[in-house]
């Protein structure tokens, strides 16, 4: 007997042989999280958060994550704007610019940290002058954490906003122009509100990436409790000295990530990123 439900006649079309690796793949992604959740000392959760430096690193992480998100918004939205409107430029220039913006996305964060050190360190390309003229020494300070996180997270914001700008109807800008709006007013009152969902999505992704940043931060900003020891670094260190604290920090980071996924559900989980 055929099935009574009006099922797609092609069925799922999944060859039987794929089920095993597919199931293993899923288990590979999910089991570590289950192992982590299983090890979290739920009973002492509160006391660990209060007594160890979990709270301190959490506070610092939030502060730096928010700082980095603001830096990325202030610099990244205009950059996305230029990228989205570079259609009239020479293709080599346009593609080169986009490639440059994408580099931090694919580059190992440690390399980013070293590069920042060589730029802003005391003997760095710019750091030399910052030190000589203003007595500013950035490495191993809280601002250095924000700089590292911004460096790594900015592409997320730029690409999200650029996508939104490309999708926005430019004829609305024509309409605003014929009504007498200046370019700045068009940006502020028309285009920015139109791409607001993209900016929000980009900012959330950017924040999530900043919060998890490890490699660039520990390289450029180091590991000073309360100054540069963010949650991922604290978790890594605690694993040797105080494993339960490491599990708790990991849980907090995991919860934040899931929160981001939840905030992005319409864009990512349903595959509507384009």
């Amino acid at each position: 007997m055929p099935k009574t439900k009006p099922v797609d006649r092609r069925g799922s079309g999944i060859p039987g042989i794929l089920w095993l690796p597919a199931g293993l793949g899923l288990a590979f992604l999910v089991l570590p999280l289950i192992a982590l959740i299983g090890q979290v000392p739920w009973a002492q959760l509160g006391s660990i958060v209060v007594t160890s430096d979990v709270a301190q690193s959490l506070g610092l992480s939030l502060e730096c994550g928010i700082g980095a998100t603001i830096v990325c918004l202030v610099l990244g939205v205009p950059l996305a704007w230029v990228l989205a409107r570079s259609g009239g430029w020479h293709p080599v220039l346009r593609r080169g610019l986009r490639a440059l913006v994408t580099v931090p996305l694919v580059m190992p964060p440690v390399v980013g940290g070293i590069a920042l050190l060589l730029l802003l360190g005391r003997r760095g390309l710019i750091g030399t002058y910052l030190d000589a003229w203003f007595h500013i020494d950035l490495p191993f300070t809280t601002p250095a954490v924000i700089i590292s996180e911004s460096f790594v997270a900015m592409p997320f914001l730029v690409l999200a906003v650029e996508g939104a700008l490309r999708a926005a109807d430019r004829r609305l800008e024509d309409a605003a122009e014929t009504l007498g709006a200046s370019r700045w007013m068009i940006f502020r009152r028309v285009t920015l509100p139109l791409v607001a969902p993209g900016v929000t999505a980009g900012a959330v992704l950017c924040f999530a990436r900043a919060l998890g940043e490890f490699g660039a931060t520990i390289t450029f900003a180091g590991n000073f409790p309360g100054v540069t020891r963010t949650m991922p670094i604290a978790a890594y260190l605690a694993l040797e000295t105080d494993p339960p604290a490491a599990y708790v920090i990991s849980l907090v980071l995991l919860v934040v990530s899931i929160g981001v996924l939840f905030a992005m559900r319409d864009r990512w989980v349903s595959g509507l990123t384009s």
């Binding site: 309409a175 605003a176 014929t178 009152r189």
Partner: peptide, 24 residues
Amino acid sequence: VVFQDYLLFPHLSALENVAFGLHA
């Protein structure tokens, strides 16, 4: 200009759409 498809600003109310040029 009354554009094809009207091109009203989708994030503004009808009133704010009409007021836009006056603001500008």
